[in-house]
Amino acid sequence: MAGTATMLYAHPQAHPRRDACLDWLQMITGACLVIFMWCHMLLVSSVLVGPALMDAIAWFFEATYLVQAGGPVIFVCFLAHFILAARKIPFTAGDQEIAWTHARMLRHRDTWLWMVQMVTAMFILVMGAIHMWVVLNDLPITAERSAARVASGGWLWFYFILLPLAELHVSVGAYRIGVKWGFISRQNRPKAKRIELCMFVVFMVIGVGTLLVFNHMATVLSAGRGV
């Protein structure tokens, strides 16, 4: 028997539920980050309504210590999510070649979306970490300080790159969770794809608008100070 079986592998596992637990954690950390990103967008884009609103929201989160406590929690979630998801990323040169050849051969949207998730993840890992470090080391958050930061140095470009990467990753990730756990079925998959695309477009528009407002605010503020 063993002579004919070409696919006999031994998979010793100290903990029989290890993979199940890791899969749960990957999904939960991912879902937390998706929800966080939506809330985060609400905070940041509130400046579109008025700087006073953004200041008020930021003040609320700081007075209740949600930023001081939540910030590091999100940071841990962020790193944990990366480590968990990295289990499935083809990191070796050989595996990379298999993955890209396969995606090019198949010309299949969902397979390409996975490649998108893989690539955006690498950039978000570095840029998201820099961003969180800078913002959390410069509390309190106010519209004026954010505006000054966005307009200084290369930060505007930094955000113009991070924004689409993060929004792509978040909307594809949300869709993927739905597919994997069966919330998205064969029947509602076309609708889910449309929602995924809408989500991406809406958040991009809000995000770009926010960045432009920050940039404009900074110009007005520095002109007001006669700089």
């Binding site: 539920r17 993979d19 199940a20 499935k88 969902d110 996975w114 993927r176 597919v179 994997k180």
Partner: peptide, 18 residues
């Protein structure tokens, strides 16, 4: 669960739907 409850079974599936 003993048959498919690992990364070689259902938890290895990445939901690419090809």
């Amino acid at each position: 669960f003993d048959i498919i409850g690992t990364d070689f079974g259902i938890f290895g599936c990445m939901g690419l739907l090809a």
